[in-house]
Amino acid sequence: MSIQADVRQFIVKNFYVADPAGLADDASLLDKGVIDSTGVLEVVAHLESTYGIKVDDAELLPENLDSIARITAFVEKKKG
């Protein structure tokens, strides 16, 4: 499964998105209310356990984590 597909599956399942088709890859998860500040930590825990990466505190920013596309790009960058 691609990183993007995995991230999408995790978001849809963990945040009980009833209409996955309505959630665009570039939609802001915070603006849509899909995740809140606790939800961000759930995303990070998933990324760390699935991809063996370590996310620094300083990287916990909306720029890295606020949409499926941004999360995917962030993971790809971290994995090098």
């Binding site: 915070l30 603006d31 809140d36 500040s37 606790t38 961000v40 930590l41 990070v44 505190d57 300083a58 916990l60 920013l61 909306p62 984590l65 606020d66």
Partner: peptide, 16 residues
């Protein structure tokens, strides 16, 4: 005292 994530998210939340 929050992790950066919560602070950054809170700033975006309240700054909307």
């Amino acid at each position: 005292r929050s992790p950066v994530a919560q602070k950054a998210m809170a700033t975006q939340f309240f700054g909307r």
